[in-house]
């Protein structure tokens, strides 16, 4: 079973960056999520970010909000998300799975209970967008106990001082939020995003891979952020739009695979 670190290293050797694909688990139904994962992985997704649907996702735009509602209406519970992860992992043993969840569901179930189950189900790490490092002591202790990666977020507003602390608290990769705003497809990458990557890169370099997310949906977006210094691109809403717009499963899976392929093809590392 590969770790997140190993997956980055293998890609580096092939002069490639990583493609991290986000989907909301259980959207549109829990049964189909493993098939969606298959399609994305066939297309070239290196790391799967599995969203645990929450009733009030404050960091997400309309696309992921709608996906969360579909998943919740289909009966997706936090424990069911781990079952889905297990199913995906049994087929794709070398693809790391990270769970993206707001803090309350895993807190309510119990950190120890949820994280230990996550570990036995093949989950590699966690992203918790409403848990800043200052509040994360208990969470970090528990993830350490179960050898799970803790992926913290950094943002355009993050100061150098906080950035250093966040990088030191993170394992797996650093999740850099590309712009001021919530998740969702954007037509272009702002120059400020590229400058942000250039500012953050020297701090993550030699410590942890730098992944950039929020608003990244096209091959040219991916090319630009990788060229600016990112090690990975995180794509979510672009995939979810495909899921939302298709009622026919075969078409949907083909389209997801094709989209992942064009994105992965764009991730060429040109550095030494």
């Amino acid at each position: 079973m590969n770790t997140i670190k190993q997956v980055f290293e293998t890609n580096y050797k092939n002069k490639k960056g990583c493609l991290i694909g986000y989907i909301t688990a259980g959207d549109p139904t829990p049964n189909i999520t493993p098939k969606i994962a298959d399609a994305l992985i066939r297309g070239g997704v290196d790391i799967l970010e599995l969203g645990l649907p929450f009733s009030d996702p404050i960091a997400d735009g309309p696309t992921i909000q709608a996906a969360s509602i579909r998943a919740l209406n289909a009966g997706t519970t936090p424990m069911k998300v781990l079952e889905i992860a297990k199913k995906i992992k049994s087929k794709h043993v070398n693809v790391p799975i990270v769970i993206m969840t707001y803090y309350n569901p895993i807190f309510r179930i119990g950190l120890d209970n949820f994280l230990s189950t996550a570990k036995t189900h093949g989950v590699n790490g966690f992203i918790v967008p409403d848990l800043p490092i200052e509040e994360a002591a208990e969470f970090k202790k528990t993830t350490n106990n179960y050898d799970l990666d803790t992926i913290f977020l950094a943002a355009p507003s993050t100061s150098e001082e906080r950035l250093n602390k966040i990088v030191n608290a993170s394992s797996g990769f650093l999740y850099l939020v590309s712009h001021f705003g919530v998740t969702g497809v954007k037509s272009s990458i702002e120059n400020s995003t590229l400058q942000l990557i250039q500012r953050v890169k020297p701090i993550t370099d030699s410590k942890i891979p730098l992944a950039v997310g929020f608003g990244i949906s096209k091959p040219e977006h991916v090319q630009r952020i990788i060229k600016a210094g990112a090690d990975a691109a995180i794509v979510g809403s672009a995939f979810i739009n495909i899921i939302q717009n298709n009622t026919n499963n075969t078409d949907m899976l083909n389209e997801l695979e094709a989209t992942a392929k064009t994105l992965k093809t764009a991730i060429i590392l040109e550095r030494p």
Partner: peptide, 12 residues
């Protein structure tokens, strides 16, 4: 209490 907000809001 505390400050359980996304990182983007922490400086704010």
């Amino acid at each position: 209490g505390g400050k359980f907000v996304p990182e983007i809001l922490m400086e704010a």
